[in-house]
């Protein structure tokens, strides 16, 4: 347990002080690992506060850190009230159904879902599900494609122009096309998932494919010649070569690509949700903007910070997976 704890950079000095080792040195480490980031944050908050009090918009004063805290609390309490309401609704429904069944045993009870509006937390959930679906879909296409074009210099030359052309395309350009195609092809009376979700997911996928494709291809193409020779001397078949030599060897680069892709996916998602009206964070920001109340800017600021934090956490999670999966621990430190 202690060893697991001391693996986390900012906890280890505390563990080591608790063990009574090198107190003054550890205090210095603490100042470096915790003090400096805190100081940076503090300076930023001060600048933010000062700037906010000098900006007046048609929706009132620009929100400072204090307003954001208030709005965060507001959004959370809205979430909890909404949950209570939902619970109360289901309780009432159950009671009513029970009463009707008692009166008339042949009655088949009807259950209806609660139709309250999604709360901020629900919206975060929707965003996460959408971005991960898009990202997983993109990875499932990008990694095999990257391996195939990485293994053949000819295929790489053939596809490189296509990749380079589509790589810089903004999600806003894709979205109208995707919307129309999804509307045309995704027709069903009882759709499993809403169209807005499919549209957002596919847009995310189209935008975040490329870093994984390129990095996988480069990783595969730069396998040391010696390892390829080993594979040839052992007469490994194509699939064995891919499984035993190519995949493990290019794992560090694949993860570099995946982390870039996930970052892009998250950025693209907000824009996609705004336009596709997928009920996630992007829609939240758009709705608040349209709403134009005096709270709106503060609430949008909450969303901005949430988006930043979640983006950061997603990257950390990828890093953790990379550390678990990759043999090259040195490549996984940043």
């Amino acid at each position: 347990m202690t060893t697991a704890l001391s693996n986390i950079a900012w906890i280890s000095p505390f563990v080591s002080i608790a063990k009574g080792e090198d107190v003054s040195g550890n205090i210095q480490t603490i100042i470096k690992t915790i003090g400096l980031p805190l100081a940076g944050l503090l300076v930023f908050l001060m600048i933010w506060q000062a700037a906010a009090s000098n900006i007046n918009t048609s929706l009132g004063q620009f929100p400072g850190p204090g307003d954001v805290v208030t709005q965060t609390k507001g959004l959370l309490s809205e979430h909890f009230t909404e949950r209570e309401k939902a619970e109360a609704f289901y309780e009432r429904q159950e009671k009513r159904n029970a009463a009707r069944v008692k009166q008339d045993p042949t009655y088949v009870p009807k259950t209806r879902d609660y139709t309250g509006k999604p709360t901020y937390i629900d919206q975060i959930g929707t965003s996460l599900v959408t971005v991960l679906s898009g990202f997983v879909l993109a990875s499932l296409i990008a990694i095999p494609f990257g391996i195939v074009i990485g293994l053949s210099a000819n295929l790489y030359s053939a596809f490189n122009p296509v990749i380079q052309i589509f790589k810089p395309v903004s999600p806003l350009a894709w979205l109208p096309i995707v919307t129309m195609v999804v509307s045309a092809l995704y027709v069903s009376d009882d759709p499993m998932v809403p169209k807005s979700f499919v549209t957002s997911m596919i847009t995310v996928m189209l935008c975040c494919l490329w870093p994984t494709v390129i990095n996988t291809a480069v990783g595969v193409a730069s396998i040391p010649k010696d390892l390829v020779n080993v594979s040839q001397v052992l007469r490994l078949s194509y699939m064995e070569h891919v499984r035993k030599i190519v995949l493990p060897s290019s794992i560090p680069m694949v993860f570099t690509g995946l982390r870039l892709s996930l970052g892009i996916a998250w950025m693209v998602l907000i824009a996609a949700e705004m336009l596709a009206q997928n009920p996630g964070l992007g829609k939240f920001v758009w709705d608040e903007f349209q709403n134009g109340s005096s709270d709106s800017l503060g609430r949008i600021m909450v969303a901005v910070i949430t988006i930043g934090l979640i983006g950061f956490l997603l990257d950390r999670v990828m890093l953790m997976i990379q550390r678990k999966v990759s043999w090259d621990k040195s490549a996984a430190t940043r």
Partner: peptide, 19 residues
Amino acid sequence: NEPGPERAVVFQNHSLLPW
């Protein structure tokens, strides 16, 4: 006319699979 294990090679830079 092709590589094979009956002609095993010891490479200059060991070329062990690092993983």
